[in-house]
Amino acid sequence: MEVKVKLYGILRKYGEGKFDRGDNIIIPEKFPLRDLISYLDIPERLGKICLVNGYPQDVEYKLSEGDEVKILTVLGGG
């Protein structure tokens, strides 16, 4: 199945070569967010905030066909 993924800020440099079509990535059914993050080579040490279809989800969340995923990291310094 396909999901649409957008990375923000300092995360944009990750995931090179992992996108299958534009912003889309083909993943197995019920693929957890945690595994998607790992697949994109985003380091464990960076704090992540994930929105799926506009709503915050924990990394255990299992993705569905056509989901729109945004992955961001909070710096908290400003």
Binding site: G9, I49, T73, L75, G76, G77
Partner: peptide
């Protein structure tokens, strides 16, 4: 590098999401 390119202002998007 992120602070250099986007300053502190660049944090708005992630903070809104968080």
């Amino acid at each position: 590098a992120g602070f250099k390119e986007h300053g502190t202002t660049g944090e708005m998007i992630a903070n809104d999401a968080a």
